[in-house]
Amino acid sequence: MSNIQIVELDPADDDLVASAFEVLRAAHAADAPEAPAPHWGNFSLGLVHPDPAEHGPTFVAVRDGEAVGLAEAGYPRRENLHFGWASIHVHPDHRRQGIGSDLLNHFIEDAKRRGRTTLTIDTRLTWEDGVERSKAGQLFAEKHGFEQALTWINRRCAVDALEPEAEQALLEQAQAAAGDAYEIVSWIGRTPEHLVDTMARIDSTILEEVPLGDLELGPETIDAELKNARADRNEAMGVNAVQTIAIDKATGEAVANTAVFAYSDPEYPDAFQGITIVNPAHRGHRLGTLLKILNLRLVRENFPQVRHIWTDNADVNAPMIGINVALGYEILDGGAEFQRKLDA
């Protein structure tokens, strides 16, 4: 079975975009039907409105005019210019024909042309008593010289996982631990202009603070221009950031932050927890728990279609896992980034 051509997906090619999305839909149904389904608007509009901090080509394996596989790739534009990532999907009807390898090799050659020397690909894994997953993705990565560098756990939480009394008690305990040193501020959508600079500063600490395993990634510098450009993209794609932060009253600086991302689509039942971060100097005051409960209530009030919030955490991130378990998050499965360093 050959006759495969690999092309970069043109967002204006409506037929091929729809065919590529069908690959994602079919792969999801075969590999992880319990996980959130691919969202057509997010996929198609994401092609039209790329991440302003990343060059993100999508390579499509085409046979007889139809997509049979795709590799969604990303190359940071600002920092980490040595790095590139790809997520590879092959339609279940066309597997075991070398299409995944063709896509991976195409990505590797593209990365080399761009001077990238450290690459990652991802796959799902079985984790503890979660849903059993195929080892095919892991074996594929290892076959091509990629080594497991970061493991994470995928969890979901019903928006009403806790009884109201239990949720309120948890909130009050967190409020007592936080005391009156912090101002709590929430919003939906764009970051208010007067908070953009302080939010850019706390966002710039994310890659320093979150566990990255053996991934070779340095800190990112987020500035107001990038934050506003990402807000423009979210608006264009119908993605709503539901955000709650803690501001240190003594300094006026944001010192803790959580965000959930929900689609405007009234039929889509899933939302996605973004990074929750607390400045190291302000840990121990239960700010993570406090912000996540208040933010959960905002999601319930403003996005009634959302039934579950999804998150993933590095397997070694015990503090955040502890908060999530207390809030009712349950394990679905695991996942991993596999890393390969190219010859210089």
Rank of each mutant, 00 (worst) to 15 (best):
Y329R: 07
L327D: 09
A12F: 02
A236I: 06
F21S: 00
D10W: 08
C157N: 11
P52H: 03
I331R: 00
A176I: 01
N324P: 07
Q243P: 00
K249P: 13
D214A: 15
V68K: 08
G145Y: 04
R300W: 11
G328Y: 05
R63F: 03
A161Y: 07
R300Q: 15
L9H: 14
T258V: 07
L139D: 14
H28W: 15
E267R: 12
V90N: 07
H106F: 09
R340G: 07
D10E: 14
N105V: 02
F83N: 06
A71D: 04
G252W: 06
P219L: 09
G69P: 06
G56D: 14
G69R: 04
V316A: 00
D14P: 00
L327G: 12
E34I: 00
F21T: 05
A37S: 15
R78K: 04
G189D: 04
T311C: 07
R25Y: 06
I88Y: 09
N313S: 02
L291C: 07
A254Y: 01
G334W: 04
E128H: 04
A161M: 09
T118D: 11
I323G: 12
N302Y: 05
K143W: 01
T120P: 02
F59Y: 10
P76K: 02
H39C: 09
D197V: 11
Y182E: 10
Q148M: 15
V159Q: 13
T58N: 10
V131Q: 03
Y182Q: 11
G65Y: 03
D333E: 04
G189F: 02
G334Y: 00
G115Q: 11
Q243H: 02
R340M: 12
G137R: 10
R96H: 13
L327S: 11
I88D: 10
L215G: 05
P76A: 05
I309S: 03
P192A: 11
T289R: 15
D31G: 14
S19F: 08
D180P: 03
I188Q: 07
E142R: 12
F272R: 08
N279K: 01
L81H: 06
A224F: 00
L332Y: 09
I275R: 06
M199H: 06
G288V: 00
D270H: 13
V299R: 11
A158T: 05
I206Y: 04
G130M: 13
A246E: 09
G218Y: 08
T198D: 08
R133T: 01
T311E: 05
G274N: 12
L171D: 12
D270I: 02
H282R: 01
L9Q: 15
A176R: 10
I245E: 13
L291Y: 06
A18D: 14
E216S: 07
F43E: 09
I206S: 07
G56A: 15
A161W: 06
R96V: 10
V48K: 14
E167L: 15
I222F: 11
V278T: 14
